[in-house]
Simulated assay, not measured.
Amino acid sequence: MALNSVNTNVGAMVALQNLQVTNSELQTVQSRINTGKKVASAKDNGAVWAIAQGQRSEIGALNAVTDSLQRGQSATDVAVAAGESVSDLLLQLKEKALAATDETLSSSARDALNEDFKSIRDQIGTVIENAEFNGVNLLDGSITGGFKALANVSGDTIDVGAEDMSLSGSVVSLGASQEIDTKSKATSALSDIDDSIDQVSASLARLGTGSKSLATHMTFVGKLQDTLEAGVGNLVDADLAKESARLQALQTKQQLGVQALSIANSSTSMLLGLFR
Rank of each mutant, 00 (worst) to 15 (best):
M1T: 10
A2M: 01
N4V: 12
S5N: 07
V6E: 01
V14T: 13
L16C: 03
Q17T: 13
N18H: 03
T28P: 01
V29D: 02
Q30W: 04
R32T: 00
V39I: 14
A40H: 04
A42G: 01
A47H: 06
W49I: 03
I51S: 14
G54R: 12
Q55T: 11
R56L: 11
E58K: 14
I59Q: 07
A61D: 12
L62S: 06
A64V: 13
V65I: 04
S68G: 12
Q70N: 15
Q70L: 12
G72N: 06
A75P: 05
V78R: 09
V78G: 04
A81L: 02
G83K: 10
V86G: 09
S87K: 15
D88P: 01
L91P: 00
K96C: 00
A99D: 01
T101W: 04
T101P: 03
E103N: 14
T104G: 12
D111Q: 13
N114H: 06
D116P: 01
F117P: 00
K118M: 06
K118F: 00
I120C: 03
I120F: 05
I124Q: 11
I128Y: 03
A131W: 04
G135S: 05
V136A: 07
L139P: 04
I143L: 14
T144C: 05
G146R: 02
K148Q: 15
A149V: 07
L150M: 10
L150Y: 05
V153A: 13
G155F: 07
I158Q: 13
E163P: 00
D164M: 10
M165G: 12
S166L: 01
S166R: 13
S166V: 03
K183N: 09
A186Y: 01
A189R: 01
L190F: 10
D195K: 13
S201R: 09
A202L: 14
L204D: 04
L204F: 12
R206I: 12
T209S: 14
K212F: 07
H217L: 12
M218Q: 15
T219I: 07
T219A: 14
V221Y: 06
V221S: 03
G222A: 13
K223A: 15
A230P: 00
G231F: 02
N234H: 11
L235F: 00
V236H: 04
L240R: 02
L247I: 03
A249S: 15
Q251I: 05
K253D: 11
Q254L: 14
Q255N: 15
L256G: 07
G257S: 08
G257F: 06
I263D: 12
A264R: 04
N265L: 15
T268D: 14
S269M: 11
M270T: 11
L271K: 05
L272F: 14
L272M: 12
